[in-house]
């Protein structure tokens, strides 16, 4: 397993470098890597347009994948992800509120989407304990469905109220999800929060394993399960909200990537978390490449991730849920 893991890490690092180079030089305006250093126009495109986008895509993939992995551990449920528990729709509602009523400041979008993301998560958790039907996993998924539907109704109301010329395009773009138009300022707004959350979750990767145990056993091992769970879920929501405030709703990554990693490397989180971070980064770069280049106009990234993420999810799930 050890050599298998280190080979994978090496492969992923090479793929990331290749993907970064391809994103930097391939696009609507194809650049020659050997002549770019002397070409002022090429340098401008690389440094001002493509580099912030590449870095944002990497951060987006890392944040959503790690958030999915730790939420699945924290809820002892391999079927949850930011979108299943209503976090994405809650964050969308928060962002819509900010776009409509507090315009002109990405920081407010970020803050409100984080607050409503957390609120949606807490609501899903509370509703799931009130549901008297099915097992724990089913209850949580059902509660997440109900909470998602409620917040998406709220988003619908916001769309209805939005100024069709100014606010509605911004809102629609945000809801479909994408990285077109990302500039350094966007990246720098989002990067510190997302980076801090990802680093802390990475450092806690072994400790997060405790959450798969029953609460009485966790206590007997000297750790307060409620505090640990609250800490990692808050970090996961912060990471999700930070990237979501820039990229909009990007579905299926948080659910699919940790599943693939568990299939490849086993369930233990000190492998799943780093593998999810790396695989999330590489897949997001590839998906964003596809979004930019596959047609004449850019396809919103959220559409690509939902389509390909769902296909990958079905492929991996049809080969057995990670029980055995």
């Amino acid at each position: 397993m050890k050599t298998y893991t280190s080979r994978f890490l090496l492969l992923v690092c090479i793929l990331i470098i290749m993907a970064v180079l391809s994103v930097l030089f391939v696009g609507r305006y194809t650049l020659n890597p050997f002549h770019s250093m002397n070409d002022e126009m090429a340098l401008t495109i690389i440094l001002r347009i493509r580099l912030p986008r590449v870095l944002t895509a990497i951060m987006l993939g890392m944040a959503l994948s790690v958030a999915g992995a730790v939420m699945q551990a924290a809820f002892k449920n391999p079927l949850v992800g930011p979108e299943v528990l209503g976090v994405s729709q809650g964050a969308a509602f928060g962002a819509a509120l900010a776009i409509l009523f507090l315009p002109g400041d990405p920081l407010k979008i970020q803050l409100l989407s984080a607050v409503f993301g957390l609120l949606a998560l807490a609501t899903s958790y509370m509703v799931s304990s009130a549901i008297r039907y099915g097992g724990r996993i089913l209850r949580l998924v059902l509660a997440g469905l109900a909470v998602s539907a409620t917040f998406s109704a709220g988003v619908g109301v916001m769309k209805f109220l939005a100024d069709p010329l100014k606010q509605l395009p911004e809102l629609t773009f945000w809801l479909l999800g994408g990285l077109s138009g990302v500039v350094w300022r966007n990246f720098l707004y989002m990067a510190p929060l997302a980076t801090i959350a990802i680093i802390i979750l990475f450092i806690l990767r072994w400790r997060i394993n405790l959450l798969i145990l029953d609460d009485d056993v966790i206590i007997s091992l000297g750790t307060d399960p409620k505090k640990l769970r609250a800490t990692v879920i808050t970090l996961a929501v912060i990471a999700t909200a930070a990237v979501t405030s820039i990229a909009g709703i990007i579905g299926w990554i948080g659910l699919t990537i940790p599943h693939i990693c568990r299939k490849l490397f086993g369930a233990e989180n000190s492998r799943v978390i780093p593998a999810s971070i790396l695989l999330g980064a590489i897949l997001m770069l590839i998906f964003d490449d596809i979004a930019r280049t596959v047609s004449a106009g850019e396809i919103p990234l959220g559409i690509i991730t939902s389509l390909l993420g769902a296909v990958l999810f079905v492929i991996f799930l049809s080969r057995g849920i990670p029980h055995e």
């Binding site: 551990a73 002892k76 449920n77 391999p78 394993n209 798969i212 145990l213 029953d214 009485d216 056993v217 206590i219 007997s220 091992l221 000297g222 750790t223 307060d224 568990r262 086993g266 369930a267 233990e268 990670p322 029980h323 055995e324």
Partner: peptide
């Protein structure tokens, strides 16, 4: 506190529900 106690007493419950396939 639970940290100090975890170095004195260990606990084996009647049943444990492990959903993830840890080795």
């Amino acid at each position: 506190d639970i940290d100090a106690l975890s170095k004195i007493i260990s606990w084996v419950p009647q049943e444990e529900d492990l959903l993830f396939p840890y080795t």
